[in-house]
Amino acid sequence: MGDPNFERTVVLLCRHEPEEGSFGLVLNRASNLTLGDVLELPLGAAAPAAPLPLHLGGPVQPNTLHYLHQRADLPDATDLGQNTHWGGNFEVLLGLLQAGEVGADAVRLYAGYSGWGAGQLEAEIGQKTWIVHPPAAGKVFTLATDAFWQAILREKGGRFKALSNYPIDPRLN
């Protein structure tokens, strides 16, 4: 693709409507920021949610906050399968974190998102720009951020498994 925003990334599609477009989150781009760095929290730095790491969800609207979690009971959340949910009432989520009812290991926060217009993603897949993998939403909470790309390719097997160890610049190998 030649776009550094998506080099060696794994994107979880959260919404795919061919006539409207698609919305996804890059799962394997860490940042050096935490939630407490970008959002005023009721207890400031002492808030249980303050140290939660902020990941880079994609290049679109990087000043927006998106989140994945494992709380099926969070109002307005979208079920992505495999005990993974997208969005929902953020104030309720903060309250659950504050009360210790949700642990840091059950929430992933993302700045920005990845988006495609109507038909754009289908066209890119048709051009073999993307490697499509069966839904693996549950891996959000089982794989380390820096392990996603390699783990997904290895799981696909065959020629993809070989790609998992391929250097970014083969001339430097």
Score class of each variant (00 low, 15 high):
71 R>F: 01
60 V>F: 05
74 L>F: 11
68 L>W: 05
118 A>M: 06
37 D>V: 12
89 N>I: 11
137 A>P: 01
116 W>Q: 02
136 A>M: 12
42 P>N: 07
18 P>S: 04
114 S>A: 10
73 D>A: 15
31 S>M: 08
151 A>E: 10
134 P>E: 14
152 I>N: 02
83 N>K: 05
12 L>K: 07
55 H>V: 07
20 E>T: 14
90 F>N: 04
26 V>Y: 02
123 A>T: 13
21 G>K: 00
57 G>Y: 06
32 N>S: 14
114 S>L: 01
38 V>L: 15
131 I>M: 05
95 G>N: 08
136 A>V: 09
124 E>F: 09
61 Q>E: 13
44 G>Q: 09
119 G>C: 08
90 F>L: 15
107 V>M: 01
133 H>T: 10
77 A>P: 02
158 G>M: 12
20 E>N: 10
100 G>K: 13
35 L>H: 05
110 Y>W: 00
92 V>P: 06
9 T>E: 06
78 T>H: 13
35 L>Y: 07
23 F>V: 09
107 V>H: 02
123 A>D: 10
6 F>T: 06
74 L>A: 08
60 V>K: 02
19 E>A: 14
7 E>L: 04
44 G>A: 02
93 L>H: 05
117 G>V: 11
11 V>L: 07
133 H>N: 11
165 N>S: 14
78 T>N: 10
63 N>R: 15
50 A>Y: 00
109 L>E: 01
133 H>R: 08
138 G>R: 00
19 E>S: 14
79 D>P: 12
167 P>R: 04
75 P>A: 10
160 F>P: 00
51 P>G: 07
144 A>K: 12
68 L>F: 05
166 Y>K: 09
34 T>P: 04
46 A>W: 06
18 P>T: 09
159 R>Y: 07
152 I>W: 00
154 R>S: 08
26 V>S: 05
22 S>C: 02
170 P>D: 09
131 I>L: 12
44 G>M: 04
151 A>D: 08
155 E>N: 12
152 I>R: 03
138 G>T: 09
119 G>A: 13
86 W>D: 01
65 L>T: 03
146 D>F: 04
81 G>Q: 11
17 E>K: 10
85 H>F: 15
61 Q>L: 06
164 S>V: 09
69 H>M: 08
72 A>R: 13
74 L>H: 11
96 L>R: 14
30 A>L: 05
118 A>W: 08
73 D>E: 13
76 D>M: 13
102 V>P: 00
167 P>D: 02
18 P>C: 05
47 A>V: 06
103 G>D: 06
131 I>V: 15
68 L>Q: 06
20 E>W: 06
1 M>V: 14
105 D>C: 10
169 D>F: 01
146 D>L: 02
85 H>A: 08
40 E>K: 15
127 Q>Y: 10
15 R>W: 00
158 G>W: 14
